[in-house]
Nucleic acid binder design. Structure first.
Length: 431
RNA sequence: UCCCGAGUAGCUCAGUUGGUUAGAGCAGCUGACUGUUAAUCAGCGGGUCGGGGGUUCGAGUCCCUCCUCGGGAGCCA
């Protein structure tokens, strides 16, 4: 008997096939039983009629419990009553792995319970849909850069020199060389690679030891960081807008079924086309003050301010040229207003907040050194980074996109933690 | 670290100004039912009320303390 995956069944109508998977739901009406299977490619309802199967088979069907792994054999039938459009008129079932007392019932559960059972929760329809959207987002990212002739450069996770400040980094002993830190960004390394390859990006996990307890933060999350030689801040924003629009369009094109499963209203996603509104930080402050916020020029935008501002628009927005004091040392000073730097954040609509932080980098050796010293950092640790400005310095820009934040936004999830299979949070290291 | 909230059955929760034997729905088990989509109907079992201490004739309920978890702030993607 040939094996088939659920998403191949349209090629087997009228044939007898065997499908292997896990029991998602069972319903019985005494003489007819419905068993819904999941095999990863889709869901399939197998229908057993007591009249048509041997007593021993019927007895096995009656005992099936949630998440039992089974091989079900039957004839494929197109049936409009079935979700997915196909049904199996089942003739046999073989239990491959029993599943007594599966902890997650189809009823409601609290988030603590579900994350404690994350390894099993991944099997639920919702989580399967999110995993597929994530896969699409990741593939869209890789294809976007590959098609534009970027080179992927994998940056180290263990690092000695440090991205911004040491306070929020995880550290570990590193042989005889003292402390090593888990990377919180690949950016500095990718700047070095940009001088070798022109257009590059890194894509991997990053770590923040900050004790964040919000719906927008994870301690381990994935970030994609392109870096482009000769791009100024303006070109950097154009790349970001093209990038985000491409990701959203790709998901709408290929994962509509999953978005439907997630009950995501796709209308706001369909509006995600460039150009995105651009507001200077200074204008943003004035606008926020007019909207009732009491924030003052010189402070960073808080979460509430970001939400307030983004709500004024129907697509992602850029806020650019922040005060130097609230931003990292490597951002290039704005020649037209030295109080500010040539950077931007991209704020997602619908209250999802910052999904990108980007900037043009300081390419002048002496100015960069001065910023490092002014921030109390050790210039020796940044010697190699300063070298990039000593040997053929170049205008360059880049940004970091938070993958889980982007997925949460596209899926319409209220919390970031469902966007990754096994989220690491301050109170969660299991499973 | 700070502010707010929660902890009662396997799960989600209710539990009144302190009152006698702590409840419901779902899940589980038993039975009925040939088209169910969280099926439905009938019946049955199920409790260290987060831990410790205190007040009281009497505490799930009030007080103190500790623990755990959730949300938010800060930090940022």
């Amino acid at each position: 008997m040939p094996y088939a995956r659920v998403n191949e069944l349209h090629r087997h109508i009228g044939e007898s096939v065997t499908v292997r998977g896990w029991v998602t739901t069972t319903r019985s009406s005494g003489k007819i039983a419905f068993v819904v299977l999941r095999d990863g490619s889709g869901y399939l309802q197998a229908v057993f009629s007591k009249r048509d199967v041997p007593d021993a088979t019927w007895a096995r069907v009656a005992e099936l419990s949630l998440e039992t792994s089974v091989a079900v054999t039957g004839v494929v039938r197109a049936d409009a009553r079935a979700t997915g459009g196909h049904e199996l008129t089942a003739t046999d079932v073989e239990v491959l792995g029993a599943s007594p007392d599966f902890p997650i019932s189809p009823k409601e559960h609290g988030s603590t319970f579900l994350f404690e059972h994350r390894h099993l929760w991944l099997r639920s329809r919702r989580q399967v849909a999110i995993a597929k959207v994530r896969n699409e987002v990741v593939q869209a990212i890789r294809d976007f850069f590959y098609e534009r002739d970027f080179v992927l450069v994998d940056t180290p996770i263990l690092t000695g020199s440090i991205g911004e400040e040491a306070g929020n980094l995880f550290s570990t002993d590193y042989f005889d060389l003292g402390k090593a830190y888990l990377a919180q960004t690949g950016q500095l390394y990718v700047e070095a690679a940009a001088a070798a390859l022109g257009k590059v990006y890194c894509f991997g996990p990053t770590f923040r030891a900050e004790k964040s307890k919000t719906r927008r933060h994870l301690t381990e999350f994935w970030m994609v960081e392109p870096e482009v030689a000769w791009n100024d801040s303006d070109a950097n924003m154009r790349l970001q807008e093209e990038f985000i629009a491409a990701i959203v369009a790709r998901v709408l094109d290929r994962r509509l079924e999953e978005l439907k499963e997630l009950e995501r209203d796709t209308a706001p996603l369909e509006r995600v086309v460039g150009p995105f509104p651009r507001i200077s930080y200074t204008d943003a402050v004035a606008k926020l003050n007019a909207l009732g916020s009491d924030m003052e020029w010189g402070n960073d935008l808080g979460g509430d301010d970001e939400t307030l501002l983004a709500r004024e628009y129907d697509r992602p927005i850029f806020v650019y040229n922040y005060p130097k004091g609230v931003k990292a040392f490597y951002m290039k000073e704005n020649p037209e207003d030295p109080r500010t730097v040539l950077n931007n954040d991209c704020l997602a609509p619908e209250g999802y907040g910052e999904i990108i932080g980007g900037s043009q980098r300081e390419d002048d050796h002496d100015r960069l050194l001065a910023r490092i010293v002014a921030q109390g950092l050790d210039p020796e640790a940044y010697r190699w980074y300063l070298d990039l400005r000593k040997y053929g310095t170049f205008v360059h820009s880049g940004f970091g996109l938070g993958v889980e934040r982007t997925i949460a936004w596209i899926c319409g999830n209220p919390h970031i933690r469902e966007s990754i299979a096994f989220p690491r949070q301050i109170h969660r290291l299991y499973p």
